[in-house]
Simulated assay, not measured.
Amino acid sequence: MKPTSDTIELTIPAKAEYIGVVRLTASGVANRMGYPYDAIEDIKVAISEAITNAVNHAYSEDEEGEVAVRFQLLPDRLEIMVADKGRSFNVNAILEEMKPLDASASLEELSEGGLGLFLIDTLMDQVTFNNDSGIAVIMTKFLQRDEVELHADRIKQSYDRPVGR
């Protein structure tokens, strides 16, 4: 595929029934860029988790909210931003709670909080958070596995990166 820098943006209501629309878009975009099947599935799960977090936590039950999704198609990677303008959360506290799962722990012992973020981090090559106004999760999946090593600082918090909404 010829190098590109296209951008695709979607804005959906903050409702679970619209997650499938974004998953289909992600699948089509990643397939067009040449990602293998397993990577496309990882992207779909990660984007589902990010949107589910926004749907479940950003807005109160009686509040009508939106979730903005931006796909940035770059020659060596796909960057996906999922952003809401709802309630923010303490990113540092969540990141400290995220740790590898203990395989010997029972299901009752596993903490539910942060599992979605743990999945996103596990499935994507790089994850960045911005919580200036609401929350934006920027997830990166590189086309070539060797690109991951060049960007080994996987999860980080970003306050200085502008986020388009």
Rank of each mutant, 00 (worst) to 15 (best):
M1A: 14
T7N: 03
E9Y: 00
L10C: 04
T11W: 05
I12R: 02
I12M: 05
I12V: 15
P13K: 13
K15A: 14
Y18H: 14
I19H: 09
G20S: 11
G20Q: 10
G20K: 09
V22I: 14
A26R: 02
S27N: 14
R32H: 11
R32Q: 12
Y37E: 03
I40E: 07
D42S: 10
I43K: 04
V45W: 00
V45H: 00
A46Y: 09
S48D: 12
I51T: 09
A58G: 15
Y59E: 08
E64W: 00
A68Q: 14
R70N: 09
F71Q: 03
Q72Y: 05
P75W: 10
R77N: 01
L78G: 01
L78A: 02
D84W: 11
V91E: 05
N92Y: 07
N92R: 04
L95C: 11
E96M: 12
P100A: 14
P100Y: 13
D102Y: 00
S104Y: 08
L107I: 10
E108W: 09
L110C: 09
L110W: 07
F118Q: 03
D121G: 12
T122V: 04
T128P: 00
F129L: 05
G134R: 03
I135F: 01
A136G: 05
M139K: 02
K141A: 04
E147L: 14
L150I: 05
D153N: 15
R154S: 01
Q157H: 11
Y159W: 12
Y159V: 13
P162E: 06
G164Y: 05
